[in-house]
């Protein structure tokens, strides 16, 4: 009955907490700002609301995901979801082993990182340590263009340009849809993230450190690899984790080029399905909102959300925890 009472104890607590929060918010917080006029107060309140919107978005995401996920696990036991490696949500005999999708996601992300880490790190080192300013002024905007290309375009590229080359190399047995070509374009997609963030971190390393190393008789490579790279380590690692998180969350290119075959094999020349591709596949069909296929969408999305959120938090933690403080 408490929910119907106009002033239930819980509501009171919430209300007083909110009131406390508001009182605090509405104090002038900067010296010299004086007391606020009614208009100023109104604007202050409105701006406060816009700022809290982002918190509501997060809450909304979590609630939406949890709600349907709980529904899903009412019908399918937890063990079937996390304890199995075979996925066939669209067949009559349904299996919901999420590991098949996680594995597909992981495989494409790993291929992507295998492409992007060497390319991105080398590009970052070149831009930060070797490049004359004029060359950097050309290369950086091009990398930005690469970062701005819509992912659906990368999907097209994978299908039309990368896959045929892979088939030329490995023979006609290889399907047009395979994990390798999707992984390669995902790698290409995240090169700019690694290159750009790592370069920022490396350029933040003080000049004096480089000079110190040069004065001991280091070559440019020794300065880059043994002084600058370790000094910028936190930023570099954070950029790689962020890029990995982006690769995991990447949707269109892997949907187009990865094929739609959830499986748990190690061969990168076979088609796989990632979590995101599965979500797209289920979204494209007209899935009734009460069906189990609709609910499993959210269970998979929840897994994806937790995974990427975890990676982002780790990246932030790494860049804070291991950052070297120079005066």
């Amino acid at each position: 009955m408490a929910a119907q009472a106009p002033h239930g104890p819980q509501q009171d607590t919430v209300r007083s907490l909110l009131a406390e929060l508001w009182r605090e918010r509405l104090q002038p917080s900067r010296p010299g700002s004086g007391r606020e006029t009614p208009v100023g107060r109104l604007i202050h309140g409105a701006l406060f609301l816009t700022a809290t919107l982002s918190a509501f978005v997060t809450i909304g995401i979590v609630l939406v995901l949890i709600f349907e996920t709980v529904e899903f696990f009412r019908e399918v036991p937890l063990l079937d979801f996390f304890g199995s490696t075979s996925w066939s949500a669209l067949f009559a005999e349904k299996q919901f082993g999420v590991w098949a999708l996680v594995w597909g996601t992981g495989m494409i992300a790993l291929i992507g990182l295998a492409v992007a880490i060497p390319l991105g790190l080398m590009a970052a080192i070149f831009l930060s340590e070797y490049s004359p300013p004029r060359l950097r002024a050309i290369v950086k905007p091009i990398l930005e263009i690469l970062a701005g290309v819509p992912t659906v375009v990368f999907g097209y590229f994978a299908l039309v340009s990368v896959s045929p080359v892979i088939r030329d190399i490995f023979g006609e047995d290889v399907g047009i849809y395979n994990a390798l070509s999707a992984g390669i374009v995902v790698g290409l997609m995240i090169v700019p993230i690694i290159a750009s963030l790592s370069e920022d971190a490396m350029r933040a390393v003080p000049r004096s450190l480089r000079e110190g190393a040069y004065a001991l008789g280091s070559t440019r490579m020794e300065v880059s690899l043994r002084v600058v790279l370790p000094a910028a380590f936190s930023g570099v690692v954070a950029s790689i984790i962020l890029a990995a998180s982006r690769a995991v969350g990447e949707t269109m290119a892997v949907t187009i080029a990865g094929g739609g075959n959830p499986q748990f094999g190690v061969n990168p020349l076979e088609a796989v399905q990632t979590m995101t591709a599965m979500i797209v596949q289920l979204s494209l069909g007209d899935t009734p909102t009460t069906s189990i296929e609709f609910k499993v969408l959210f269970a998979v999305a929840m897994t994806l959300f937790v995974l990427t959120l975890g990676m982002n938090i780790v990246a932030q933690w790494v860049s804070r925890r291991f950052r070297e403080e120079y005066e």
Partner: peptide, 25 residues
């Protein structure tokens, strides 16, 4: 601080999850 951290985390959420949020909300 919470809002700020939240914003940077939101920037890292895969876009398809926003799609599911939009679908439901």
């Amino acid at each position: 601080r919470m809002i700020q951290v939240n914003i940077s985390n939101l920037a890292g959420v895969p876009s398809i999850i926003y799609g599911l949020l939009g679908l439901q909300v």
